[in-house]
């Protein structure tokens, strides 16, 4: 089947429609709130489209209460479906199954993020999307809290959006990978559901406790999810990119070890190459 057909089939599933509607309503509400706030503040400097984008794009509440739980639900269903023996045997091995699953989950993830970006950028109708940061982004207005770290580091807004998207993709893939690895170890769906709930709860706890317990900063999931938070904590962006790849490497490493352990109890019959037990 051609890739285009797979995309079309996934896009036509009904679940994306309510998500798109919700995000459109939410984005336009946020835009209205932003414009209203700036209009009523005589000290506010001139803004451009990027300011409206960043207010939505870096919104922790949207990430925490919509994108993460939604993705965990989608992942949970996807991992359970993919855990069928008829699927696994076609992939060849545990590690190949994990890779296949990650590749397959990219499609719904890109659609989810695409819909989010579409809703967000639709609010720019009538607002100029200039190339650089606005005077508003350089000011100390509370609404530019999401952009200020990028302005400080001299990152152009487009690059900041791409970097944040990459970070989000890493985080979402990592959560899928954790669930998938657990599926390799157990077939009990209740444990998978508990793991997804645990991931969600740890995100909420990490977000809400971040300010109160500075010693938790390095463990904070939010810092691995939002670049401006990572900058606030570490004074640079790159630490945010460490968490997800490290956990992914651990999952793959464990799956590989599991596969190697199985070699001790698995081998080849001696029918062709003489005694050949690996």
């Amino acid at each position: 089947m051609r890739r285009g057909e797979v995309w079309k089939r996934e896009l036509l599933t009904i679940k994306w429609l309510p998500i798109l509607l919700f995000l459109l309503i939410w984005s336009w509400r946020e835009r209205g709130r932003f414009i209203q706030e700036v209009k009523t503040d005589p000290s506010a400097a001139a803004y451009n489209g990027w300011d409206i984008v960043f207010v939505q794009f870096m919104n922790p509440f949207l990430l925490l209460w919509l994108l993460i739980p939604l993705w965990l639900l989608l992942s949970l269903r996807f991992v359970m479906e993919a855990g069928e023996p008829t699927v696994k045997i076609r992939t060849g091995s545990d590690v190949r199954w994990l890779l296949w699953l990650l590749r397959r989950s990219c499609l719904p993830m890109l659609l989810l993020l695409g819909i989010w970006l579409l809703a967000m950028f639709s609010t720019l109708v009538g607002v100029p999307l200039k190339q650089g940061w606005s005077d508003f982004a350089r000011s100390d207005h509370p609404f530019n809290v999401f952009a200020v770290s990028f302005v400080k580091e001299g990152w152009p807004p487009g690059l900041a959006v791409l970097a944040q998207l990459a970070l989000l993709v890493l985080f979402l893939l990592m959560s899928t990978l954790i669930l998938a690895f657990l599926r390799l170890c157990t077939e009990r769906s209740i444990l998978l559901s508990l793991c997804a709930a645990g991931l969600m709860i740890s995100c909420i706890v990490a977000f809400h406790r971040q300010g109160h317990y500075p010693q938790w900063q390095w463990a904070s999931i939010v810092n691995s999810l939002m670049l401006n938070n990572a900058y606030g904590t570490f004074g640079r962006f790159w630490p945010a990119f460490i968490g997800a790849p490290t956990l992914a490497a651990v999952c793959f490493g464990l799956a590989l070890s599991r596969q190697n352990l199985r070699r001790r109890t698995q081998g080849r019959t001696s029918s062709i190459q003489g005694e050949n037990i690996l």
Binding site: G92, S93, D94, R96, Q266, G267, R268, T269, Q273, L278
Partner: peptide, 14 residues
């Protein structure tokens, strides 16, 4: 569990 090498290309896999 031993499998004919024709069908067991990567040990540890399926």
């Amino acid at each position: 569990v031993l499998i004919d090498p024709t069908y067991q290309k990567s040990p540890g896999g399926y």
